[in-house]
Amino acid sequence: MNPVATPIFFYGLSIAAIVFATAVITRKNAVHAALSLIGTLISLAGLYLMLYAPFVAAVQIVLYAGGIMVLFLFVIMLVNLDQNIREIQFNKQWLVGLIAALALGGLALFVIQQGKSIFPLDQVAALPEGMNTQMVGVMLYGPYMLPFEIASLLLLVAIVGAVVMAKKRI
C-alpha cells in the first residue's frame, strides 16, 4: 500500500514537534513545560510511524509519554516551585549559551550538507518488508542478546540509585 499525503503529515508533525520543544524551554511554569514535552514526544511518535517503525512509536508513547513524563510530573509536584516561577528563569551566561548552541546548529547543518555525498540521503527508501515488531523481537533476542541483558542490569542499578538518592535515611 502506498503512503498517502506524506508531506502534509511530515510537515505538520515536525512543526508541532519543534513548536512544542520551543515551548518546553521557554515556559515559566514547569508543568506547562512537561505538558509541551509530551506534545513533542507524541509528534515524534507520529514521525516514527511515518518511518515504518511502529514498535518504536508504541514504545515512545507507552514508555516516554506514559512513564517518564509521569515521573517528571511527580517530581514537579514534590518540589515546591511556587517561588521559582517569580524568579529569573535564565542564567547569566544565556547569551554565550545561545551563541554556542547556534554554532553547534550551523555545524550540524554543514555536516548534513557534506554527508549528502556519502549517504543516499535524498533518495526515497524502499518500503520495508516483513513484520516490524516481529523482526525487532528476533533481533533483540538474537544478535543483541548481551546488550539487552546489560540494559536490564542498567535499569536495576538506576532503581537502586534513585532509591538511595531520594531516601532521607537508608
Partner: peptide, 24 residues
C-alpha cells in the same frame, strides 16, 4: 520526504535542547 528532512528536524530539536540545557 527523504531522510534529509528528518535529519534537519532532528538537528533543530537537538539545538533547542542544547539551548535549554545551557540557558535555563
Amino acid at each position: 520526504i527523504t531522510t534529509l528532512h528528518y535529519l534537519v528536524v532532528a538537528a533543530a530539536l537537538l539545538i533547542i535542547g542544547t539551548i535549554g540545557v545551557l540557558t535555563r
